[in-house]
Amino acid sequence: MTSGALYPLEINLGPLAPHHLSEVIVGIVVAGLIWFCFAKFISPNFDAMYQERARLIEGGIELAEKAQSEAEEMRKKYEEQLATADAEASSVREQARAEAASERTRMRAETQAEKDRLLEQTRNAIAAERDTVENQIRTEMGGVATALASKIVGESLEDDERAKRTVERFLAELASVPAQRA
């Protein structure tokens, strides 16, 4: 270095300087070749494989989801059926209860009617019997009265005393009969 030169004309970079320019060019060519071949021939195949793999995995998930939704649907259907059956049973029970109640009412009414009918019948029978008995009594009373009259007439002439006794006896006879007029 002379005193006139402020800067060294040539800086020695040592190992930091390439030996030949060709090294840089070869480096670029090799890197470019690798870049080109990976982009053109290698990575498309890898990408296709990764996509296919993702698709398969997604497909598996989809299948599982489908099965799950089917199971869910089935469960809903069964639950619905169960609910329907429940409702049906309760309605049948309700109906039976209502029918029983109406039957009971009907039978009670029937029994009442029968009872009334029987009561009426009995009353009628009793009334008829009483009418018959009254008529009979009346008829008999006529006969008895006639007999008494004939007795009185037959004996009256003989003795007042005896006639008096006869009447009393007759009255006593009458009294012993428990007939009453209602």
């Binding site: 480096g27 670029i28 470019g32």
Partner: peptide, 16 residues
């Protein structure tokens, strides 16, 4: 360890 090749590589990277 030959810097020329490294330079070529890095130039490609910068261009990329």
């Amino acid at each position: 360890s030959n810097i020329g090749y490294t330079m070529g590589l890095v130039l490609t990277v910068i261009v990329f």
